[in-house]
Each structure stands twice: as structure tokens, then as C-alpha cells.
Design a protein around this nucleic acid. Structure first.
Lengths: 204, 204
DNA sequence: TGCTATATTTTGACGCTGTCAAGATAGTTT
DNA sequence: AAACTATCTTGACAGCGTCAAAATATAGCA
């Protein structure tokens, strides 16, 4: 059905070529016209596959979420989740994704797409599910008796995600520049999460 | 000296008018041409006061840092700094600035300016000093015996700043949308900082 | 005062951008 | 073969940042 008669599966090729450009030159370096000519079609051809530049970016972000999930999935079962090793895997894995694919991260968790309120439905679903999974995992720790019931797991998920997001952003935006400190920062963050999870037996 | 003969202190008027536009329509809504005509001069007049659009943005960011510092200064002396109240003042004050002036925050702590490596010298100085002050404050807590010497205050400052930055970004970028949860999230973050600062007597 | 040097502003232009409208072409369906 | 649809192209428009050259206004100095 979606064979190609003029070109060859342009839709997909646009996404992957655009992703390449964005990884090489940043989001600012991607223009619809350049993308089109680089892929070998006329300037406006892409507009028959994506209503907008915005829609194209959403598609790339969605691809980013797939990579993100693939990288993240295995980390959760490799160690006791509420332990130094377990949390380090998750935190360092998160920051590593952000620093390794900063342009993907920008698209996925940056204001450009989210502030517009014009996310693709599928992208929105994928993002929400990503966060919900984080909350569910923490809730499971409670069920399993690994952490106290008094802990508000939603708030924990929000704040710990914020910390990971904050570190990632400060790094990829060039505000924290000392790359050698990343490991150590992650360790400190893990210590923070751990003391919070373990020492909150009777907080309320 | 810097009086005006054609206009009336254009330099300053450009900054404040640009800041107004940016607060109203976001950074994307600011164009040099529109700014110029809105201020009553020709399109290229601003280029004799700012080499670049980039340089104009730096000037606005710098103004943002002034507001930021003014808002932050009084918060540090209003309560015991290593206590629930003390930390809440700082954390909530930070997030409140970000949500109240999201466009300023974007400029000051967003990748646009920092990734370019073309910050104004004065802007860079002001930003670094802002962060150094945070570290110095934590070091003083050690001197005063409020927290244990084994704590790496640089790492604590980096991670706690990351948390505040992460919350702020997630909020102003439209990823966390539930505004009513802000207070509660800040409380949780404070709990996290506090348990870390108080329960680390023999961590190393 | 008048002359020159400098600071400020304007007009015109270039190449770039996202995207719309109309027309051409190739493939599918009947 | 005819009608229809999906895909692609050409042409155009308004907007952008910014450079070069020309115009204008002020200041310093004779």
C-alpha cells in the first residue's frame, strides 16, 4: 500500500534524515527546505507527509521515546531497585541518554513541543505512559514492603524525575560544563533519594 | 554623554521594550524588526546598540538576573537555613520566580544563550556568582556546625539546584501541568534535602 | 562662528525561512 | 479507457537576521 511510486517511502526517510540533521547540527539547523533537497525532493514535498514542521518534530520525538524506553527497560531488573546499585543504574542511565542524544532529549522533554499544546496524540500517550510507569514502580516498592507506606510515591516520582531532568538539562544546555563531575553528581543524587526513601518511617 | 540626540536613550528602551514583548509573546515572538518599528525606529537601528540579536537577549537575561537576586536575597536570612522553613523559603522562592517570569527564566537558564558560548562577560560573571553563592552558603553551614563535614557541599549545591531547576523547567515547559501540586512538590523536595543533610553523619 | 570627526539612523539589498495555491504527474480503481 | 486519488513540483508571499552604503545630527575644535 504505502509503496513508493515517485520516491521511496518518503515519510520514513524524512524522519530519519531529519533526525540525522538534528543530531549533527541541532534543532536550529533543521529547515524543511534543506531537509527536502537533502533527501532529493522539492521544497514542499514533505508537506504531503507532515502537516507542519511541528508535526515532523513530534514524529522525531516519538522515535526518541522508543530509543529511550529500549535503553531504560533493562535497567529496572538488574538490581534491588531500592538500593545504591539499583538507583544508580536508573539515574546514570537517564543522564547518559540525555548527554548522548541531547537533541532527542531536547525534543522529547523541551518546551518547544510541549508548550505548543499541539502534541500528536500518540506522542502524548507515550510520554505520559513513561512517567506513569515511574510512579507505578515506586508504588510497587510499597506493595513489596521495600519502602514505607507513608511516602507519597507520586511526589517522590515527580521530585526525583525533576532532579534527573534538572541535571540533564543543566548539562546539555551547557550550564554545568564539567563532564567529569557527572558520575559524582549522580551518586549524590542517589544518596539523596535513598536517605529520603529509607528515613521517612514516621514523617507525617 | 550617553544622551540622546535622535531618539531618547534607545539602548535602554530597546531592552525594556524587548523584555515586554518577550514576556507577552515568548522569545519566539521577538523579532528585531518588530521591536524596532514598535519602538519607532527603522529596522536596523538596534544594530548600533547591539551587535546581534543574541547580544540583546544577553542584556535581557542580565536584567533577569538582577530581578532574580533581588527576590532571592532576603530569603536566606528569614529562618534557620537548615530547617524545613528555611529550605522551603528558598525552594518555593526559586520555583515561584521561574513560574512567574518564565521567559526571563528561559533566557537566563536556557540553552539558547549558554550553548552558544557567546555570553557577555558580565552575564557569565553574574551567573557564576549566583551559583558560587549557593555553594558558599552550604559551606558556611559546615563552618557553623549545622551540617556534617563529610557532606560534599559542592555536590549538594549542584544536585539541589538541579532539583529546583528540573521542577521549574518541567513546569514552565508545560510538562508538569498541575499547578496545584507545586507547593506539595516543593515540600517533598525540601524533605529530601533535609533528610540528606541531617542523616549523612557517616556516609563515607 | 565654521569644519571636521564621530555617533546615530535610514534605505536598499541578500539569502534564508515556513507554508500556501495551482498545476503536473504517476498510480489505483472502476 | 476514464475517473479518481496520492504524490510531487513550480511559483509566490510575507517574514526573518543582518550587511553595506548613504544620510543625518551632534560634539569638539579652529
Amino acid at each position: 500500500m504505502k509503496k513508493n511510486y515517485h520516491h521511496g517511502d518518503l515519510h520514513q526517510q524524512l524522519i530519519s534524515e531529519a533526525a540525522k540533521i538534528i543530531q549533527a547540527e541541532g534543532e536550529a539547523g533543521l529547515s524543511m527546505r534543506k531537509l527536502a533537497t537533502q533527501v532529493g525532493v522539492s521544497r514542499t514535498a514533505p508537506y504531503h507527509h507532515f502537516k507542519d514542521k511541528h508535526e515532523l518534530l513530534c514524529a522525531i520525538a516519538e522515535e526518541g521515546f522508543c530509543r529511550f524506553n529500549e535503553l531504560r527497560q533493562p535497567l529496572y531488573t538488574m538490581a534491588n531497585p531500592v538500593s545504591e546499585e539499583g538507583l544508580q543504574l536508573v539515574v546514570k542511565g537517564y543522564v547518559q541518554f540525555a548527554t548522548q542524544f541531547p537533541e532527542y532529549y531536547d525534543l522529547m522533554f523541551g518546551g518547544h513541543i510541549w508548550k505548543s499544546d499541539r502534541l500528536t496524540a500518540s506522542l502524548r500517550a507515550q510520554a505520559y505512559q513513561s512517567f506513569r510507569a515511574e510512579v507505578d514502580r515506586a508504588r510497587q516498592w510499597q506493595v513489596d514492603g521495600l519502602i514505607d507506606d507513608s511516602i507519597d510515591v507520586l511526589r517522590y516520582a515527580q521530585v526525583s524525575w525533576s532532579t534527573m531532568h534538572g541535571m540533564s538539562r543543566l548539562l546539555i544546555d551547557g550550564i554545568y560544563v564539567d563532564q567529569t563531575a557527572i558520575e559524582s553528581m549522580c551518586d549524590t543524587a542517589v544518596q539523596m533519594f535513598l536517605t529520603f526513601l529509607k528515613n521517612n518511617q514516621a514523617s507525617n
